[in-house]
Design a protein around this nucleic acid. Sequence first.
DNA 1: GCAAAATATGCAACTCAGTTGCATATACAC
DNA 2: GTGTATATGCAACTGAGTTGCATATTTTGC
Lengths: 157, 157
Amino acid sequence: MMPRLPIDQAETMIRAAGARVTRARIEMLAALLAAEHALTHHEVEKRVNRAHAIDRVTVYRVLEWLTANELAHKIAGSDRVWRFGATNKEHARQHAHFECNRCGAMICLDEPDTKPHIRLPSGFHAQEVDLLTKGLCAKCAPARRKDRRRRSVPGWT
Amino acid sequence: MMPRLPIDQAETMIRAAGARVTRARIEMLAALLAAEHALTHHEVEKRVNRAHAIDRVTVYRVLEWLTANELAHKIAGSDRVWRFGATNKEHARQHAHFECNRCGAMICLDEPDTKPHIRLPSGFHAQEVDLLTKGLCAKCAPARRKDRRRRSVPGWT
DNA sequence: GCAAAATATGCAACTCAGTTGCATATACAC
DNA sequence: GTGTATATGCAACTGAGTTGCATATTTTGC
Ligand SMILES: [Zn+2]
Ligand SMILES: [Zn+2]
Ligand SMILES: [Zn+2]
Ligand SMILES: [Zn+2]
């Protein structure tokens, strides 16, 4: 299988969705496909702006459109900012995520891993399970070695 | 064991933390203890206001303080709003949560349940795992019976 | 290709959660 | 009670995400 340029792959995916093929959609999906981690609206905006200026509202709307069409998915982070990842090949419909407690980076974990069976109160009906592992990413883990992580109670002496 | 009023239990918990016992802290923690689900800042404000008016900034600050002192914990919801629950007796330090896809209600699940073992990329270091089950709560499940949940692609016909 | 219809984009103004600085009120130690 | 540390109230701010509407671009039909 030929490795394809993200920009071409993006165009094919959008065309396959049977929707209008616009520059913003292509470039934004390509940015997500090329990204090493899930991107915030701002990160997407910055990466696409290398090519040409794009309005921030368009960024929000295209991300929403990509998500609705299942070409991307969004993950809720601890900082109340959505991060978006391309929904391609290897990622199952359901997959876990990792968020770095230090730099905030969010990545998709493609391991299907053992599904935890959760007992719900009577009458409740489960539809999906979000699994978010938090910790330190490869870049941040070394930096925290010396921190000697005591059970911190911020703002309290 | 005597069943205690939330207000008394709250005061005891705060006093045990060795901190100043204020009306706002007691009433807000009592509201969390009495709540049937995790509360937003706004819900807390509304419940406490039955007794006396309270500034919204104080609500934020007290919730932050309760969280820092581990008398409460906060859960990130799909609507970018933090919800707070009292951290009492039965809830372990780590527990799963449930969020209703229809009404947004968030509850704590005290089942410790089978911890999923997640494989991380090399160099990554896990510290905690957030597990959020989404679906329909007991109140909303019946209402959705007829909806015949097709694979929805919102905003796309 | 060209015009018309359909829809995506840009812009301005908005909403709403959460934060910050500072003056004042309150809890607690003495 | 008085003094000191700190909690609260108020006003103004930040930043993510949304909405309405005018304009630009993509498609479709010719
Ligand atoms: Zn990191
Ligand atoms: Zn993902
Ligand atoms: Zn519900
Ligand atoms: Zn909880």
